[in-house]
């Protein structure tokens, strides 16, 4: 565990808490893509199956359970409790266009052709693109509330910090995982345009509004 990895994890937890609090406090999930949230739930479900087979550390297990529980809670709040506030007309990204290619790629490019390993690989590929429905929703409505922007910034920072963690681990431990690195780079690049808008607008107190 190095500082980049830990900061990345904290940023990830922070993002999820911001989102849950926003939905809970405003009793509304307006502006949030339920499809991205479903994809994240699928990501955690397929990645953390090793909760039952491999013990790494208490920290690891607790975080895995936390991610599973909070993503389940988010999906529940959006599709059950505050269903009436869900923006489904704008949330029209077709997730099969992400699920199918990720599944096929995981079957072809993986470390080992076993059920657990293919599912892990699938979850890594899917996570890298899971935010697309959310970014698509923001582009369709042309704007995002500040709190939604903070959520996206924290969520994007998490993988960017993991990239630093992988550079560090490569140098210090000679440890690297090409699949995770490749997907992590893709994931971070997808946020770049958003990062730019966040820094130039939201941090200066303006609302995130896309140019018309």
């Amino acid at each position: 565990m190095n500082i980049f990895r830990f900061a990345g994890d904290l940023s990830h937890v922070f993002a999820i808490i911001i989102l849950l609090l926003k939905i809970w406090k405003t009793r509304s999930c307006a502006g949030i893509s339920g499809k991205s949230q479903i994809l994240f739930a699928v990501v955690y479900l397929t990645r953390y199956l090793d909760l039952f087979t491999t013990y790494v550390s208490l920290y690891n297990s607790v975080m895995k359970v936390l991610f599973l529980a909070t993503s389940g809670a988010t999906v529940y709040l959006m599709y059950v409790k505050f269903k009436a506030t869900y923006d489904h007309n704008h949330d029209s990204f077709r997730i099969e266009f992400l699920l199918v290619p990720c599944a096929l790629l995981a079957l072809v490019i993986n470390h080992e052709f076993t059920v657990m390993e293919v599912l892990w690989t699938f979850s890594i590929y899917l996570e890298s693109v899971a935010i697309l429905p959310q970014l698509f929703l923001v582009s369709r409505t042309g704007e995002a509330e500040s709190i939604t922007s903070h959520y996206l910034f924290a969520l994007g920072s998490y993988r960017a910090l993991y990239l630093l963690n992988w550079v560090y681990r490569y140098m210090v431990e000679s440890h690297y995982d090409l699949i995770a690195i490749f997907a992590g780079v893709v994931q971070t690049v997808l946020y770049c345009d958003f990062f730019y808008l966040y820094i130039t607008k939201v941090l200066k107190g303006k609302k995130l509004q896309l140019p018309a």
């Binding site: 990895r5 994890d9 990830h12 090793d50 491999t54 790494v56 550390s57 690891n60 975080m63 895995k64 991610f67 470390h111 080992e112 076993t114 657990m116 390993e117 892990w120 993991y162 963690n165 440890h175 995982d177 995770a180």
Partner: peptide, 10 residues
């Protein structure tokens, strides 16, 4: 025996 790459990250 190959047990796959080490997965200690989240």
């Amino acid at each position: 025996i190959y047990i796959g790459p080490k997965k200690d990250e989240l």
